[in-house]
């Protein structure tokens, strides 16, 4: 309560790691970020996401076939979709971030990221949840509906600019029961 939370500062560019090199061999450019707890972290462009994830999942030497989670993060200047990829067979981990810059998002519209649920079923619910809570529209998703909140919920609660709705049980309501 004492201090205002601030988004983390951007970092300087780094040389490509194992997975970054593998991707660049296949003609996909990625930008490396500082490792998060030992896991290589890269940033991909939206249009490369589909092919990159197919490559990483299906190639025999990389074989990142366990999609741990897809998270949406509302950063200072962008809205990120963060993919944590693990492997069932070895210890490799990779964190992929796909950024939708806030300056590029049209007014009153949601940022878009291509969906991977078409070929990876486990992404289905994660993408729906990210859409529901953070408000990233995954284009090409088979069933882009809210999953945790009611279908008629206003806004996306995990955005930093989200306004809590005023209802009878809420502190912000002058007639609150509390």
């Amino acid at each position: 309560m004492s201090t205002e939370t601030k988004p983390p500062e951007p970092q300087a560019p780094l040389p490509a790691g194992q997975y970054g090199q593998f991707l660049s061999e296949h003609g996909i450019n990625s930008e490396r970020l500082p490792d998060s707890l030992g896991a290589e972290t890269i940033v991909l462009a939206k249009q490369d996401l589909d092919s990159a994830i197919k490559l990483l999942r299906n190639s025999s030497e990389i074989n990142l076939d366990l999609l741990i989670t897809i998270s949406g993060v509302d950063m200072a200047d962008s809205i990120d979709a963060v993919y944590h990829l693990w492997s069932y067979s070895h210890k490799g981990e990779l964190v992929i971030k796909v950024r939708a810059l806030k300056t590029e998002i049209p007014q009153d519209q949601l940022p878009t990221v291509p969906s991977i649920a078409r070929f990876w079923p486990s992404a289905n619910w994660h993408e729906r949840e990210t859409y529901d809570l953070v408000g990233i529209r995954f284009t090409g998703h088979p069933y882009m509906r809210r999953i945790l909140n009611p279908w008629d919920w206003d806004g996306h609660p995990l955005r930093r600019d989200y306004k809590q709705p005023v209802d009878c049980l809420n502190d912000k309501n002058p007639h609150s029961f509390r």
Binding site: M1, S2, T3, E4, T5, K6, P7, P8, I68, T69, S71, V73, D74, V82, H84, W125, E129, L158
Partner: peptide, 22 residues
């Protein structure tokens, strides 16, 4: 698992759960 982003303040910036049941 949980995906934590901290900015050094007394609150998490983002706290994301990876739940096995889900």
């Amino acid at each position: 698992g949980c995906y934590v982003i901290s900015t050094g303040t007394d609150k998490p910036y983002r706290f994301r759960w990876r739940n096995p049941s889900f």
